[in-house]
C-alpha cells in the first residue's frame, strides 16, 4: 500500500486540528500571554511584566523605583525572617516543613498535592506547618503570615515561577475551576476578573490603572499604601471581589487557592520579585 502525498497531508491537517481543538492549560497559557504581548507592544522585554502595572507606566515606575530603594516592606522581611527562624515549642521550626529548608522555593507554589488532591499555597503550607507542630495558625490576610511569606519570597527573588499541573484529573479540575472563576462575572456590578485585568488592563478605573494578570502573582505579598501595611494575595482577591459587590470567599478556601493556581500558572516563566510595594 502506498500513501499518496495527499493522504499524508490530510493526516497532518487532521492531527493539527485535533491538537488545536483541545485547549489544555499549556495552550491557555500561551493564548493568555500573547494577549498581553499584543496589547502592550511597548513592553518589549516580556520578563518586565513581573513589575505589574509599572511595566506599562513609565512615570509611575520612576516613583515606584524610588520607593523600592527604601522599601516599606523591609520590616516585614525582617520580622518574617525572625519568625521563620524562631523554633516552635517542640524545638522544630518552619524550615523543617519545607524542601530546601524553605529557602528559595516560593516559585514552586502553589502546587497541586496529589496525595491530598488539592492545591497547596505557600501560606497554607506555612500555617499547616505551625499547626502540625502544635502552634496556633496565623491570621490569613496580614500580619505575621504576610511577613513570613514575604521573607520566603525574598529568598526566592529572581527564581522563575514554576507551577505545574501534574497528570491527575483532580489537578486539571482545580486549574479549570480557577480559570472558570477568573472569567465569570460576579457581584452586583457584574464584572469578571478578565473584564478589568485583561480587557480593561492599562485603562483607568477611578484613580488607578488596571494591571495585567500576567504577572499578578510575582510580587506578593505587597505593602500597599492604601492598607498602610502588608497583605497577602488572598487579601487582594477579597478586595477585588468586594469592589464589584460580591461577597469575598474565605482566604485560603478552595476557591481562592484554585484561582491562585490558575493565576500563577498563567504567570509561569516570570521571576518572583516579592515582596513589593503598591499604591
Amino acid at each position: 500500500m502506498t500513501i499518496t502525498t495527499r493522504q499524508l497531508l490530510g493526516g497532518v491537517v487532521g492531527l493539527v486540528a485535533a491538537a488545536t481543538s483541545f485547549a489544555g492549560p499549556e495552550e491557555d497559557r500561551k493564548a493568555f500571554q500573547s494577549f498581553y504581548f499584543d496589547r502592550f507592544p511597548q513592553v518589549t522585554d516580556h520578563a518586565d511584566f513581573k513589575n505589574g502595572v509599572y511595566s506599562i507606566l513609565p512615570e509611575a515606575r520612576v516613583q515606584w523605583e524610588q520607593i523600592e530603594e527604601f522599601p516599606p516592606y523591609e520590616l516585614a522581611i525582617e520580622e518574617g525572617q525572625a519568625l521563620f527562624e524562631k523554633p516552635f515549642a517542640n524545638g522544630k521550626s518552619l524550615a523543617d516543613c519545607f524542601p530546601n529548608g524553605g529557602i528559595g522555593i516560593r516559585q514552586n507554589y502553589p502546587y497541586f498535592d496529589t496525595a491530598r488532591g488539592e492545591v497547596v499555597t505557600l501560606e497554607l503550607a506555612i500555617n499547616e506547618c505551625r499547626t502540625t507542630n502544635g502552634e496556633k495558625p496565623y491570621p490569613w490576610k496580614k500580619g505575621p503570615l504576610a511577613s513570613v511569606s514575604s521573607y520566603m519570597a525574598y529568598t526566592s527573588r529572581d527564581a522563575m515561577i514554576d507551577v505545574k499541573i501534574p497528570d491527575d484529573p483532580r489537578a486539571l479540575a482545580a486549574y479549570e475551576d480557577g480559570k472558570m472563576h477568573y472569567f465569570t462575572k460576579r457581584g452586583q456590578l457584574n464584572f469578571a476578573c478578565s473584564d478589568c485585568h485583561m480587557y480593561g488592563s492599562g485603562q483607568n478605573l477611578r484613580s488607578e490603572t488596571l494591571s495585567m494578570s500576567y504577572g499578578h502573582t510575582t510580587g506578593f505579598p505587597v505593602y500597599r499604601a492604601k492598607w498602610q501595611e502588608m497583605g497577602t494575595l488572598h487579601r487582594r482577591l477579597a478586595g477585588c471581589h468586594e469592589s464589584v459587590r460580591a461577597k469575598a470567599f474565605k482566604a485560603q478556601g478552595p476557591e481562592y487557592r484554585n484561582l491562585e493556581y490558575f493565576l500563577a500558572y498563567m504567570s509561569s516563566g516570570l521571576e518572583i520579585n516579592g515582596p513589593s510595594a503598591r499604591k
Partner: peptide, 15 residues
C-alpha cells in the same frame, strides 16, 4: 447571573 455565566464564560477566554 450564575446560570448565564456558566453558559457564557468560555467566550471570554482569549484564543
Amino acid at each position: 447571573q450564575a446560570k448565564r455565566e456558566s453558559e457564557t464564560w468560555q467566550a471570554r477566554m482569549p484564543r
